[in-house]
Computed example of a mutant assay.
Amino acid sequence: MFQDLTHSNISKFQVSEFILTGFPDIHTWQHWLSLPLALLYLLALTANILILTTIKQEVTLHQPMYYFLGILAVVDMGLATTIMPKILAILWFSAKAISLPECFAQMYVIHCFVGMESGIFVCMALDRYIAICRPLRYPSLVTDSFVVKLTVFMALRNSLATIPVPVLAAQRHYCSQNQIEHCLCSNLGVTRLSCDDRTINSIYQVLLAWTLMGSDLGLIFLSYSLILHSVLKLNSAEAASKALSTCTSHLILILFFYSVIIVISITHSAAMTIPLIPVLLNVLHNVIPPALNPMVYALKNKELRQGLYKALKLNIKGN
């Protein structure tokens, strides 16, 4: 009877905060990671602000393709800012405690921003498809209104579809452990600590990944398949090369974004043996793309490169 009473008291207990322990297995020297992570975060903010400033100032960049790039820059900064201040606080000041509402809020924003980034990639693929496969109809189809409507749709889609993730996590009962072997509040990392059944959380996580990421990746693949089919029909090799060059930077970012997500999904199965790998990949996936995206576009896009030179007041030709 005493054991039943003890079990009952434990089951009613609810933790008031979580402890983010940081990177598993390297707690003693994980503070050394703060320097490269801080530099990546600073680079992400600086590069994306510069991209936004350049797009705003240069009239030649007032085109749908660059509007989508500007939206991507805002999403990237939001994603990096959602996680990096807390990670740096953990590494610098051992500020590992996070309240349950803050943790669930961070969980929601991360899912929302990652889904939004995937959605913007779809918008950019659609823009390139119309520009290359339907060039005569491009000015009438891809207007400023089209960009606004598509962006609002993606924002609503991701903000609404990801609401159940923190809601379901908040409904779990956390009665014993409160230490999360992670630097951020990931859905699986948090719900793993619950004392009750978390099957519904895992099911919705998989469902969300397949419906959002899966459908986005499918639409991107379809768009570029149609683009490739259209380009291969061109008689001029120079025209084909020019058409594909406008898609190169976009493809690089897409391949990196989705390949890391796939790797993270695979490595989660090995989390029990090497827990550091999925945690490190998860953090890097949320900070490297925001720093990488502006540089890839600046290097591969002549118009944007020339605009950046003007913004930086460099007397260099963007060849």
Rank of each mutant, 00 (worst) to 15 (best):
N158S: 10
G119T: 08
L208K: 06
T151D: 06
D144M: 11
N187F: 07
L184Q: 05
L168D: 02
L160C: 12
S118N: 11
I130V: 15
L150S: 12
S118K: 04
P101C: 15
I98Y: 07
F153M: 06
L168M: 14
D144E: 12
Q106L: 11
S194D: 05
D144S: 13
M213K: 09
V190C: 00
A169D: 04
A125I: 05
Q179H: 05
S202K: 04
T211R: 05
P135E: 08
T162F: 03
Y204V: 06
G189M: 02
V165T: 11
S99H: 09
M107N: 14
H173K: 13
T151R: 04
A161P: 00
I180M: 02
Y174Q: 00
L207P: 04
I203K: 08
I130K: 09
H182S: 02
C183L: 03
A209F: 14
A105E: 12
L136A: 13
L188I: 01
I200T: 11
N158D: 11
Y108W: 15
S194N: 05
N158Y: 03
L188G: 00
I203E: 10
Y174M: 02
Y108D: 11
F104I: 08
V148C: 10
L136E: 13
M154G: 02
C123G: 11
T199Q: 12
L207V: 12
S140Q: 14
R192N: 12
F104L: 15
I98F: 10
F121D: 06
C123V: 04
D127P: 05
A209L: 13
V206Q: 12
I180K: 00
M213G: 15
L150Y: 04
P166K: 01
T151Y: 06
F104V: 07
A105L: 15
G115E: 04
D144W: 10
Y138P: 10
M124V: 07
V122P: 01
W210H: 09
Q171W: 06
A131T: 12
M124W: 02
S176L: 14
V148Y: 12
M107F: 08
F113Q: 08
L136P: 06
I163V: 14
N178C: 01
Q177K: 13
H182C: 01
A131R: 12
S159V: 04
Q177A: 13
C133A: 15
